[in-house]
Amino acid sequence: MGKNKTIKVDVLTRVEGEGGLYVKVVDREIKELRLNIFEPPRFFEAFLKGRLYHEVPDMVARICGICPVAYQMSAVHAIEKIFGLKVEGQLRELRRLIYCAEWIASHCLHIYFLSAPDFLGFESAVAMGKKYPETLQQALRLKKVGNELFSLLGGRPVHPISVRVGGFYKTPLKKGLKAFLSELENAFEDAIESIRWAINLDFPDISWDIEFVSLWNPEE
């Protein structure tokens, strides 16, 4: 970077939500830095008041089209806590599974479709696929498996309709899940390959004096 520089991005692309960025560098030092988030408010916290408890999981899903299950799970856990209800055993495992399906689909979107084109200097994943067809194919295969597992448990790949307080409206048949197993086994290879590929991307060498925190559940 030169000694003086101004970076102005009116709208950030390939991110979820809407925002802009302004950076002003003078003498190699950042003098001004503005991240402008103009994603409009939708007031979920306000309009949820006064709703019936069983409506909440369907409503909060609409906070985000990429990670609806995250909101649904937080909502059902909160409401179950109020009722003094604990959902355990197979139902809990199925909940974890639908969450994993969302992760497969959303992480695949994030890594391959939103971020990778920046690392490799393309405008989009499709453009990236012209030079690296196998990478795009791998992305599409993984996305498909994530979406299909999601639909198998949730009824459709966005805003699942099966999640409810207390468990599920309907659980998938063992037969259906078993039939899907081989697809998952193939996807496992693609997932490992994806990690290999991603760690070899050229990450900028920056380090901050920051402590990152991550949470984990010893039972899962």
Partner: peptide, 13 residues
């Protein structure tokens, strides 16, 4: 919006 509709485009694999 929540992006859910436009993301049906990459969802088409």
């Amino acid at each position: 919006s929540c992006d859910g509709c436009q993301l049906s485009i990459p969802d088409m694999e």
